[in-house]
Structure formats: structure tokens, C-alpha cells
């Protein structure tokens, strides 16, 4: 098998490394596909955010680009009516329990949700689904950063950084369904956990859930 394959995305022919996932192939070539949960180094993608849909010629239905490996001759479309509908619904669902107050948010203007909204022309404030914003205690226990779970989109970036970069194992997902959260063992404040307070979380969080206290001032 050759090292590179040729694929076509939105009528553009590109040469990409064989074995690469479609999402990264596109992003590397400045072709935008919305995404929140994809982690390049992770072998088995979570594919939880459902934002990265594309249509591949020959497939009967849209596929998540973070899970699809490129194949030679693949013809891909990032915008079709079916893709747009799927992405819009996923986006609305993600926002339906999001504490949307951009002006008070440390991630304002540097937020993945805002980027998706802008690139895809979807409003952040939407009305189709009932909004359920859960009450959370703000965790300001670490010195340099804080954690506001009402803005968390459960993308898993922080958990990955915690395990694979910081190698701490201080946080993880807990509970199920609407109550799903990122938290520490027994839901304690971060400072009471084995969190090394290395600020990786704040670096990787694509929204304003983990943030530097400095940024909030």
C-alpha cells in the first residue's frame, strides 16, 4: 500500500497520508468540518458529539468523519442537506443544556461553539429543544484555573489530557444521561483530588468550562 492516497473533498483534490482519518485530512487542508470530541492521537474515537458528519460517495448515509479512514479515490462532501440537518440537530442538542451567556464567559471569542455557529450559520440560541441548564457549584479550588460545569459540552478533551498528557487520572466521566458530568472521584473539588493542578484542562477545553482565572477577570 502506498503511503499516500488521493481523495476529493468538496471538489478539491487532495493528497493525504494513508490511514488518516477523514476529519484530520480535511482540517489539515483547511477544509472545515465541525468537531468537538475528536482527538487526533486517540486510536478509537469517541464519536460522541455527532458534529463531524460528511457524505461519502457510494455510502447510503452520512458518516462521522472522525471515524472514517481515508481511502484512495474517496469523494466527500462536507455540506449536503442531510449533513446540514444532522449537524444542526446535534448542535442544538449540545446547546440545550448549555449555560449560554457568552458575554460573561471567559471563552468568549475563543470558543469552539461560537466557531461552529459562525461557520455553519447556526444560531447559538435556539428554540427547538427545551433548554435544561443544570445548577452546578463553580469549582474554583485550584489556584490558576476554575471549572464551571454548566458550560461543559462533555467532549472529553480534558479527560484525555488528564490521562494521556498529565498522566494523573484525577478526573473522569460520571453518571448517565442528562446527569453526565466530568468530575473527580466522589465528586470532590479538584483541589481535594489528586489533580496536579497542571492547567492542562484549561488549555484543552474548547469552551468556557475549564478556564484560567486570569481570563475571567
Amino acid at each position: 500500500m502506498s503511503e499516500y492516497v488521493n481523495i476529493t473533498i468538496d471538489d478539491r483534490q487532495i493528497k493525504v497520508r494513508a490511514g488518516e482519518k477523514l476529519l484530520w485530512a480535511a482540517l489539515d487542508n483547511d477544509i472545515y468540518i465541525p468537531h468537538l470530541c475528536a482527538i487526533r492521537e486517540k486510536e478509537r474515537p469517541n464519536a460522541g458529539c455527532r458534529l463531524c458528519f460528511v457524505e461519502i460517495e457510494g455510502d447510503t448515509r452520512p458518516a462521522t468523519s472522525c471515524t472514517r479512514t481515508v481511502e484512495d479515490g474517496m469523494v466527500v462532501r462536507t455540506r449536503t442537506p442531510r449533513v446540514d440537518r444532522l449537524v444542526k440537530t446535534a448542535f442544538e442538542l449540545i446547546l440545550s443544556d448549555h449555560n449560554l451567556k457568552c458575554r460573561e464567559c471567559p471563552a468568549n471569542r475563543n470558543c469552539a461553539l461560537q466557531t461552529i455557529a459562525k461557520k455553519r450559520g447556526i444560531k447559538l440560541r435556539q428554540g427547538r429543544f427545551k433548554t435544561i441548564v443544570r445548577e452546578f457549584e463553580l469549582d474554583e479550588s485550584p489556584d490558576d484555573f476554575a471549572f464551571d460545569r454548566s458550560r461543559c459540552v462533555l467532549c472529553g478533551q480534558c479527560v484525555w489530557a488528564d490521562r494521556e498528557v498529565a498522566k494523573t487520572g484525577a478526573i473522569g466521566f460520571a453518571n448517565r444521561g442528562l446527569n453526565r458530568v466530568v468530575t473527580t472521584f466522589r465528586d470532590r473539588p479538584l483541589a481535594e483530588s489528586n489533580c496536579a493542578k497542571c492547567t492542562f484542562y484549561a488549555d484543552v477545553c474548547p469552551v468556557g468550562a475549564f478556564y484560567y482565572k486570569k481570563a475571567a477577570e
Binding site: T168, A170, R186
Partner: peptide
């Protein structure tokens, strides 16, 4: 495994 995983 991290205790957080057992808790999860």
C-alpha cells in the same frame, strides 16, 4: 485504574 474511573 484511576479511582475516578471506578466512580464513573
Amino acid at each position: 485504574v484511576p479511582p475516578a474511573d471506578v466512580y464513573g
